[in-house]
Design a protein around this nucleic acid. Structure first.
Lengths: 200, 200
DNA sequence: CTTGTCATGTAGCGTTCACTACATGTGGCG
DNA sequence: CGCCACATGTAGTGAACGCTACATGACAAG
């Protein structure tokens, strides 16, 4: 009677349900997706839903975690400690713009937009997850460009939020990436003006 | 029996009701404000509400128009046709950041954030109002810096959206204005590099 | 086969949503 | 005063919300 033999009859794939929820939440946002939408899409009834996920908000958290795992930008590569900010930050912005506008229906950053949910619990979950990414940017800049780490981190954060929101409202992929390139060029110009780094 | 003598007994100030609605919608967003919230705040009952305003969405439109009239940035001054972009665009961003973070509870741009409402009718109203401002920016740049008017207009638009969203999520006033100054400095650097205008 | 455990479906919980039919009572007007 | 138009409050509409009590039925264990 080992534990573990007890979860026979899965009868519906819980992880697949999280994937379905992830798509719905990403497409429409937390508040605009109802329990009925979720249970219909998963083809289960509410009691199964609550047995599997606990609540709509908990499922939202699992969906955001799944989103972060498979869609999050590779911050550790983009912001590798030895990469100069004049190269890393533009690359980060461009990668974000490309992802936010890639899919015609799953637009923007699911977590960034989750921070604007009406439900306070869902909003706090999203804010908590987002703070991880912001801290990574801040930590990178603290070691790579400490003289205005906060200012630059805020600038990047605001630009990312603007890109996500604009993507959600339909700004096409090319214009999003163009804005990201513009912002990246601005950053590079300023950083290279301050410290011409090595050669030239 | 002239018309006009017929609207005796106002009994509640409809324009004051619009002001109350403006504050509620700005603070919480369209979806998060219920009819009960509105009628309680105005101290009227639903029938009076519908007699006066038609529907929640129509009142939202009137509230946004009121917001635009009294809070909108003076685009015609900020973007005066003879003002150089390297001066006008930073001024616009800074003015927006100051306004978005001015009040501790009425944060961000009511119209910008209205574009993210779940209700399609409300969203379209907000998008329609916002397009006016964007067209003003675009028209200014078409005559002041035609070589990359679209790119610059998109950059400004995205930055404004990022500032509004960040303000709504609590970024303090000083950091908002700092980001606006950073973005403005970036724009000025690039524009001055391209065309040193007149004197050195 | 019997029993126990569990996820399931049926049905419905209480609440809130935007919105409205209807009766009331006040005011201007003749 | 009598009339009547009209904004008002009472009360409630049907629908949707997130969520759950309960009975059903399938499986593994004995």
């Amino acid at each position: 009677m080992n534990a573990k033999t007890r979860q026979r009859r899965p009868a519906f794939d819980r992880e697949a349900g999280v994937a379905i929820a992830q798509a719905l939440f990403h497409e429409r946002g937390y508040d605009a997706v109802s329990l009925a939408d979720l249970t219909n899409a998963m083809d289960i009834k509410p009691p199964s839903f609550y047995a599997a996920y606990g609540s709509k908000a908990e499922l939202f958290e699992r969906a955001m975690l799944r989103y972060a795992q498979e869609n999050a930008l590779p911050l550790d590569e983009l912001l590798a400690p030895d990469r100069p900010p004049a190269e890393a930050l533009p690359a980060l912005l461009l990668a974000a713009a490309k992802q936010y506008g890639r899919d015609s229906v799953l637009r923007g950053c699911m977590i960034t937009e989750g921070m604007r949910a009406d439900d306070p619990a869902a909003r706090r979950m999203a804010e908590s997850l987002a703070s991880g990414g912001l801290q990574a940017i801040r930590a990178y800049l603290d070691q790579a460009h400490p003289q205005d780490a906060e200012s630059l981190a805020d600038y990047v954060s605001v630009t990312l939020r603007g890109l996500s929101a604009s993507a959600c409202n339909g700004m096409p992929h090319e214009r999003l990436t163009q804005v990201a390139r513009t912002a990246g060029r601005f950053i590079a110009h300023e950083l290279e003006a301050d410290e011409p780094t090595t050669a030239s």
